[in-house]
Computed example of a mutant assay.
Amino acid sequence: MASPYRCPNCKTNKSRFNIIQQTAYPVKMDPFSGEVLQQLSNDALEPFHMPYRGPEYRIQCGTCGNIEDERTFLAFGSMKSQ
């Protein structure tokens, strides 16, 4: 997060952002009630339960509210303004 951001939607915001830290908790749920039956460990997942591989951070523009992957904001932040 030591690189500049710029919103890919409104294209003007370069300073107001919300950093959303994502934390995944693997669980086993009842398919009918939706009740959580068991919270699993990332180290010992059951067969057919894939670990979370998404981004650690998502960014929300503090001006227009757009939420994207951090890489998108970084890519637009490194581009020269037109």
Rank of each mutant, 00 (worst) to 15 (best):
S33D: 08
N9E: 11
E68L: 08
Q22R: 12
R71V: 06
N42D: 15
C10K: 12
Y52S: 10
N18E: 10
F76C: 08
L40E: 02
S78H: 13
D69H: 12
L37K: 09
R58S: 02
N13V: 13
L74Y: 07
A24W: 14
R71N: 06
Y5R: 01
Y57F: 10
G65S: 09
C7E: 02
G54T: 02
E56W: 09
A44I: 05
S15I: 12
Q39M: 15
G77K: 11
R6T: 06
C64P: 08
E68I: 13
Y25E: 03
S33L: 02
Q60S: 09
M50V: 12
R6W: 00
N42P: 04
P51A: 15
T23Q: 11
S78A: 15
L40I: 08
E70L: 02
F17C: 06
C64H: 12
K28N: 10
L74T: 11
I67M: 10
N13D: 06
C64I: 14
K11A: 03
F48V: 06
Q22C: 00
F76Q: 09
V36S: 02
T63D: 06
R58Y: 14
G65L: 14
E68F: 11
I67H: 09
H49A: 11
G54I: 01
F76R: 09
V27G: 08
Q39D: 06
F73Y: 13
R58G: 00
P31H: 06
L40Y: 03
L74V: 15
G34P: 03
F17W: 11
N18Y: 11
E68C: 05
P31Y: 05
Y5E: 00
L37R: 06
D30L: 01
C10E: 10
I59K: 02
T63C: 05
Q21M: 04
K14N: 03
V27R: 05
R58K: 14
F32C: 05
K28G: 08
F48K: 04
G34K: 03
R71W: 13
Y52V: 12
F76S: 09
V27S: 08
G77W: 06
T72Q: 07
Y52L: 13
A75H: 02
N42L: 04
T72W: 12
V36G: 01
G65T: 10
P55H: 04
Y57I: 03
M29I: 14
N9Y: 03
K28R: 12
A75V: 14
M50N: 13
D30F: 03
A75S: 07
E46T: 04
I67G: 02
R53D: 06
A24L: 10
L37E: 12
A75G: 01
F17D: 05
K14C: 05
C10A: 07
R16M: 11
M29P: 01
Y5K: 01
P47K: 01
K28F: 08
I59G: 00
P31D: 09
K11L: 09
V27W: 00
C61A: 08
T23F: 11
S33F: 07
R6I: 04
R58A: 04
V27N: 06
N13I: 14
N9M: 09
M50K: 15
F48Y: 15
F17L: 08
T63N: 07
N66Y: 12
E70K: 08
R71G: 00
Q39I: 15
L40W: 04
